[in-house]
Simulated assay, not measured.
Amino acid sequence: MGYIEDLRRVIGHQPLILVGVAVAVINETGEFLLQKRQDGKWGVPGGIIELGESTEDAGRREVLEETGLEIGKLNLVGVFSGKEHHVILPNGDEFFPVTVAYVTRDIIGGVLQADGDETTEARFFSVNELPENLNPLIKNLMKQFTVTL
């Protein structure tokens, strides 16, 4: 069992504050890496940090796990939080994420492939050709990512 699962056994579905990362990976032609999740929505790679893990290491780990790509240097875009980000999962668990967002152009290895677990498809998109089912929170982050560049 993991840290969050252990907490859930104690507190049930009550809201938690969880710290996570989102990473915009941009290739040499300026396209954004997006992943299609199990719910059919597209977004950038990311997830919750593990105990003792830095947000940078979590970002690198999540990109590798979900898309098969190894990344290097990360540039901080910003930290996003607030009631507008409140999540209620299908099982009733609630949380308020604090998301540390990064952007990188530093792809140092790996082979692009969906993990088949969290990610059903992973590919690069130009800013003008983003998929229809883009996670609404990611749309706001994408604006920040392009401003940071």
Rank of each mutant, 00 (worst) to 15 (best):
T148E: 08
F125C: 08
T120V: 14
K73L: 09
G52D: 04
G59W: 00
V10L: 08
F80G: 04
N135K: 12
I11H: 11
L33Q: 12
A58L: 02
E121F: 04
G20Y: 00
L34P: 00
V63W: 04
K139W: 02
G59V: 01
Q144C: 06
G2I: 00
F145R: 00
P131H: 08
D93T: 01
G82W: 04
H85K: 02
A114L: 15
K41C: 11
L18Q: 12
N27L: 13
G59R: 02
G12T: 03
F96I: 06
L112R: 14
L33H: 11
N75C: 01
V103N: 05
G78D: 06
D93R: 14
I71K: 05
G92L: 02
E66H: 06
I108H: 06
V111C: 04
T148M: 15
G68N: 05
Q35I: 14
K143W: 08
V87D: 09
D6M: 09
T99Q: 02
I17L: 12
A22K: 14
I108T: 15
I108F: 14
I138D: 03
V25F: 03
G43K: 11
G43E: 11
G109S: 12
V23Q: 09
E94M: 12
I107V: 10
G52R: 05
D93E: 14
G72I: 08
L33K: 11
K83Q: 10
I48M: 01
S81F: 14
V147S: 12
H13T: 11
G30C: 07
V147P: 14
I11L: 07
V44Y: 00
G110Y: 12
W42T: 03
V21W: 02
N140G: 12
G46S: 09
K36H: 03
I107Q: 03
D106A: 04
L16P: 14
I48D: 00
P131R: 13
E56S: 09
D6P: 01
G40K: 07
G30V: 13
V87L: 09
R61N: 05
L149N: 15
N133Y: 11
R37F: 13
E121P: 03
T67H: 09
V23I: 15
A24Y: 09
L76P: 03
F124L: 02
G68H: 06
L16V: 06
K139D: 05
L112K: 15
L33Y: 11
H13C: 07
E118V: 04
L149Q: 07
I48S: 00
L134C: 01
T29Y: 13
D115E: 02
V10K: 13
V87C: 02
R8A: 00
V127C: 06
V103Y: 14
